[in-house]
């Protein structure tokens, strides 16, 4: 039932996305004249979806330097371009609770049109998120939620689910039997959740696929190559590896190649940086798990924008009636990327 709901959600998201993108494209193509671009999607919407140039939306993250958030921001920028509004990406450069809370407070002081935020820690971020909403700033949560806060919506996928998806792919690719290993970095919560999702799904759905080892790749290619080559000695019949971090994926691919086992050991990696995509195209990595980061940014901004402009009225007075004007929980989905669809991602 849950998954049926998700499917419906995704299909409707896709449909809305298509119309909005069409509307967006047509407006931006037609030289800033917002009234002339409404042929495709019916008059009033295209006029309404137009922000002002001094309207600024912030995206706030922790570990702000990492590649992963770039996908989210790309989606946010795409929506901002369509809507004609400004975006700023900022956050805590370290994995530091204090730093992210401080950043949020600084942004609230600037009175932005909206904030998209991913929380380093749900409890720690709740007060500051509520503070922003009390100040009249729409806050949308993405990727890592603060469910007890008053945020309007959460867009994301769970890492657990992403791990399950990897297990489903690998289980099927191995015809439901064989030995597989996991390479991860113990102690990192999101990676631990991927590992748990993977191993529990394997156990439940593919009882003849044995997860023989879980090794520490330390999010480093050299270290990963070392543990994987040792794994290949220990388990000569190993037929699959789930590397739940991108550098661990490329490290595994190199170790497998050095043992002349490319292809006979199927590697499922994580995320979509260029090295992973290149390796999929070159055949050294079989598949990778992509999270719907672009959609988190795009729809996150759409949510914030429509709330800021008070465009949504599911009931007459949603503010006083405590009705959420936007879908409170959106699953942005997980995509398995293989050789057959990797080009679509490489062209981005």
């Amino acid at each position: 039932m849950n998954s049926a709901f998700k499917k419906i959600g995704l299909v409707s998201l896709a449909a809305v996305s298509l119309t909005l993108t069409l509307a967006g494209c047509s407006t931006s193509n037609s030289s800033n004249n917002s009234t002339s671009g409404n042929g495709a999607s019916g008059g009033s919407a295209a006029v309404a979806f137009k922000g002002s140039a001094n309207e600024t939306y912030y995206m706030v993250t922790f570990l702000s330097g990492i590649e992963y958030w770039k996908g989210v921001y790309a989606g946010m920028q795409a929506a901002a371009k369509d809507l004609g509004v400004k975006t700023v990406y900022t956050g805590a450069s370290q994995y530091d609770i204090n730093q992210e809370v401080t950043t949020m407070q600084q942004i609230i002081a600037k009175k932005p049109a909206g904030i998209l935020v991913t929380s380093i820690n749900a409890k720690a971020m709740t007060p500051v998120i509520n503070q922003a909403i009390a100040a009249g700033i729409p806050v949308i949560s993405f990727d890592s939620d603060a469910p007890d806060s008053n945020r309007y919506a959460y867009l994301g996928t769970s890492n657990f689910e992403a791990g399950q998806k990897a297990a489903d792919y690998l289980g099927q690719a191995l015809n439901g039997k064989g030995q597989v290993a996991v390479v991860t970095t113990p102690g990192e919560l999101n990676l631990d959740q991927r590992t748990q999702g993977f191993t529990s799904e394997m156990k439940a759905k593919y009882p003849n696929v044995q997860v023989v080892a879980t090794e520490n790749g330390n999010s480093d290619q050299i270290k990963t190559a070392q543990v994987v080559s040792a794994l290949l000695q220990r388990y000569p019949n190993l037929s699959g590896i789930f590397a739940d971090e991108a550098d661990e994926g490329t490290g595994s691919a190199t170790a497998v190649k050095e043992d002349n086992k490319t292809g006979s050991v199927k590697i499922v990696s994580f995320d979509t940086d260029k090295s992973t995509l290149d390796a999929i195209q070159g055949g050294t990595i079989t598949a990778t798990i992509a999270q719907g980061t672009w959609n988190m940014g795009f729809w996150g901004l759409m949510d914030a924008f429509t709330i800021h402009h008070d465009m949504l009225h599911p009931v007459a007075n949603w503010q006083t009636a405590h009705v959420d004007p936007v879908p409170p929980s959106v699953d942005t989905g997980v995509t398995v990327i293989t050789k057959s669809n990797v080009n679509a991602y490489l062209q981005q």
Partner: peptide, 16 residues
Amino acid sequence: LTLSRFSVASPTAGLG
């Protein structure tokens, strides 16, 4: 040599 071995240069390659 790391670049040559992996065909990938990671900005975190030498961490630690």
